[in-house]
């Protein structure tokens, strides 16, 4: 039984008396690639972290499908700046599998498969921290690939990467989608959103300003904020 849909009910997050997220209600179903779009400071990363359970909301509820347990084992996240464990590339991939008590044979199979998928097979025995930025992000994706998550959160995974590395990451993300994983990704790169999104959630100042299918959103945004963002106007 799938842990999706994920429902957020009036979720808010406060820092002091500033509401960084305010009254967010969303249902995230399996299927289409969801891209969360918005300017810096709109609350995209925060929303993702709350969905993934790294942070608890100040108010409201985050719920997975009823009757499911151990949801944290069935989701994964890729961060803007990947944290490389001070181990080999292969050991980085194996780490999460060990935590989930996957037995050695299956673990080796999944590690090899994840490295192949991300083009890192030749780097398996290298120290992860000596990889380039793009390779590190591919390794972060390999680590999550091996975990076979039902839903994958990606927090601006290409923000620090050059175009070549960005394309490699986008291809792997599409591969995740094709394998049946739900993709929820933040970006402030409109071009990337156009390439990847099936649906767009547009955040503005801690609120969901608009949610629409990608075709509609890019052709005819229904809010002034989204239209301004797409035109490249400065919203602040």
């Amino acid at each position: 039984m799938s842990i999706l849909p994920l429902s957020l009910d009036e979720v808010s997050f406060r820092a002091g008396d500033r509401a960084l997220l305010d009254g967010i209600s969303l249902t995230i179903e399996s299927g289409p690639k969801t891209v969360i779009l918005g300017a810096n400071g709109a609350g995209k990363s925060l929303l993702l972290r709350i969905c993934h359970g790294l942070l608890g909301p100040s108010g409201g509820k985050v719920r997975w499908a009823e009757g499911t347990t151990r949801q944290y084992e069935r989701q994964a996240m890729v961060f803007q700046k990947p944290v490389m464990l001070r181990r080999s590339v292969a050991a980085n991939v194996a780490y999460g599998l060990r935590l989930r008590k996957i037995e050695a044979g299956e673990r080796a199979r999944r590690v090899a498969d994840a490295l192949r998928r991300t083009g890192l097979t030749d780097f398996a025995d290298q120290p992860a921290r000596l990889l380039s930025g793009g390779e590190q992000q591919r390794l972060a994706l390999a680590r999550t690939w091996a975990l076979e998550p039902e839903i994958l959160f990606l927090d601006e995974p290409t923000a620090n990467l050059d175009p070549g590395a960005t394309r490699a990451v986008e291809e792997i993300v599409s591969g995740f989608h094709d394998s049946g994983a739900k993709i929820v990704m933040t970006t402030h790169d409109i071009g990337q959103a156009r390439r990847l999104a099936d649906e767009v959630i547009f955040l503005h100042r801690g609120r969901v300003a608009e949610r629409a299918g990608a075709d509609r959103f890019f052709a005819q945004p229904s809010t002034e904020e989204a239209a301004a963002y797409l035109r490249g106007d400065l919203l602040w």
């Binding site: 084992e73 994964a76 961060f79 990947p82 944290v83 999460g96 989930r100």
Partner: peptide, 9 residues
């Protein structure tokens, strides 16, 4: 490491 380890469960 905290967020990453937390994310791994």
């Amino acid at each position: 490491y905290r967020d990453q380890l937390c994310s791994f469960g």
